[in-house]
Design a protein around this nucleic acid. Structure first.
Length: 488
RNA sequence: GCCUCGGUAGGGUAGUGGACAUCCUAGAAGCCUCCGGAGCUUUUGACCCGGGUUCGAAUCCCGGCCGAGGCGCCA
């Protein structure tokens, strides 16, 4: 009854007997199915970390959704996980924002979201700089003041950055994306970590002391020097990033960063340098860019589709859809359902594509709730819930017979393997593919095999199967950060 | 110019060495006697090009072409 094996041509076929499938099903009806054994490994996962100079756009949230889905998968796989957002509070872009608030008409407009306000000032300041390049010197001055710890300027930077982060928090909450800790880049200057890392780098044989301090990584295939310190003595982003990763390497067993494709080179240089310093190098999940049909996005040029606009539009469309289907429900209930549906649509649409594929943002796809979409998955779940509710009490039965039953049970049994693959391969889209396969298999089963209308042990075993499917799909959706609503 | 990542039916997409290449969309034909049709069935249609490795390549290697991203004091 277990697993039988035979050879056919060049293939070895394993036949999973009913005993094997039954065991899996018994686990699948229990709460928390798919969770792997607890591990002692401490993992730190950094994602999103967008510069606080304007609202999150549809490119940034690809990072957020890939990162948050991975985070959920790691927790499901039993790891001790901390999720971090690295706040860039001392870059040139923030200095430009600070300059803009000081020199331009930057009053807050009533009803304007904080991050949108920052973007408006940032875009205006860039326009001024284009007109009068000498402003750059004033911006440089601000950066030097921050690096030297001038409290007035530091406060000014942090005030604007905090406001922008408040805006991000609203967006990320709407997307069901969570961080455990916000790590501020400037802390690595203040606590001396950056200085200490630089002094270690100075001692490396690859160090080059000209006006700048840089590493010559040509032996590792990097043509250009990796600059650590500017000629005016201030540190560059790379130096603080090294300090940050030093700290992560010291406190965690596994360090994972989710970064955009534009970071490929600097991330590789960072990995290389960490190794030279005898430290654990981060594992990096790169995702390729999301562009618009008219070209690439740019915060600076004000050319982007903001995540907030996307959320608003998808929620509107979802509300109309729910209202058309369930007019009898209270408006409050319809609003709640449509928010869950919108969340599912957005997250699934983004996570289903493998990270290494560059994409073009498409409103039509984002607003589609059929078939290969998050709402389709939610619908399959809601249907299963409805069947179980109507069924009432039944006796669990694990002896399956028909092809449809067995196909569904096998799909259910695969779930823990999928969780494991997601965290070992760092491929969150596998979970999306699995969720769709599971819902598809269920829909086919549902079409051919009557559940409530069958009788005796046939009814029992099919209800058991529906129950296992509902629980498995629920766990899959939760790992995808999608609400497993019972009705919609 | 150099480096990195992609190139799978009309459009989008899964698939890192093996059995008729996944799914969505689009086109065609069906299914409301149905437990919620955001559904189901059947069907049309694809591995960029050229070499190589292998018993066997969408998958690995080399060279093209196309797309995205990057290339010392930006982040």
């Amino acid at each position: 009854m277990g697993i039988t094996v035979d050879a056919k041509g060049p293939y070895i076929n394993f036949h999973f007997g009913t005993a094997y499938v039954s065991e899996s099903l018994k686990a699948a009806v229990r709460p928390g199915y798919g969770s792997l054994p607890k591990k002692e490994t401490r993992v730190v996962l950094e994602h999103t970390s967008a510069n606080p100079n304007g609202p999150l756009h549809v490119g940034h949230i690809r990072n957020s959704i890939i990162g948050d889905t991975l985070a959920r998968a790691f927790r499901k796989a039993g790891y001790r996980l901390e999720v971090q957002y690295y706040v860039n509070d001392m870059g040139r872009q923030i200095a430009i924002v600070a300059w803009g608030f000081e020199h331009l008409d930057s009053a807050h407009v009533a009803g304007e979201k904080e991050d949108a306000h920052i973007a408006r000032v940032y875009i205006a300041a860039n326009r001024e700089i284009d007109k009068d390049p000498s402003i750059t010197q004033q911006v440089d001055r601000l950066m030097q003041l921050v690096e030297s710890g001038d409290s007035e300027t530091v406060k000014k930077f942090q005030r604007e950055v905090s406001r922008c982060l408040d805006g991000f928090a609203v967006t990320l909450k709407a997307l069901n994306v969570q961080h455990d800790r916000f790590v501020w880049e400037s802390d690595f200057i203040r606590n001396g970590d950056t200085r200490r890392v630089i002094s270690r780098i100075e001692k490396l044989p690859q160090a080059r002391h000209d006006e700048t301090l840089a590493l010559d990584l040509e032996e590792f295939g990097f043509k250009n020097p990796y600059v650590i310190r500017r000629s005016d003595g201030t540190s560059v982003y790379a130096a603080r990033d090294l300090a940050f990763h030093f700290w992560k390497a010291a406190n965690f067993d596994r360090v994972i960063d989710v970064l955009g494709a534009d970071h490929k080179l600097i991330a590789a240089q960072l990995q290389c340098t960490m190794k030279l310093l005898g430290q654990k190098a981060p594992e990096i999940v790169h995702f390729e860019f999301v562009s618009l049909p008219e070209g690439s996005m740019s915060t600076r040029a004000g050319k982007f589709v903001s995540a907030d606009d996307l959320i608003t539009e998808v929620r509107k469309r979802a509300f109309d859809e729910v209202t058309a289907r369930r007019p009898e429900l209270d408006e409050g209930v319809r609003t709640a359902i449509s928010q869950s549906v919108a969340l599912a649509a957005i997250r699934y649409d983004i996570v289903k594509v493998s990270p290494e594929k560059s994409t073009v943002f498409d409103w039509k796809e984002a607003l589609n709730f059929e078939r290969q979409s998050g709402p389709y998955l939610q619908y399959a779940h809601a249907r299963a819930c409805s069947i179980l509710e109507k069924a009432g009490q039944f006796t669990e039965c694990y002896d399956l017979e028909t092809d449809q039953e067995i196909a569904l049970a096998k799909k259910i049994a695969k779930f823990p393997v999928v969780i494991d693959r997601v965290v070992t391969e760092l491929h969150p889209h596998l979970l999306a593919t699995y969720a769709h396969e599971l819902a598809d298999t269920f829909n086919t089963f549902y079409h051919f095999e009557p559940v409530l209308k069958s009788e005796g042990t046939v009814r029992d075993r099919r209800l058991t199967l529906v129950s296992a499917m509902q629980n498995t799909l629920k766990e899959t959706l939760l790992t995808l950060g999608i609400d497993a609503i019972r009705t919609m």
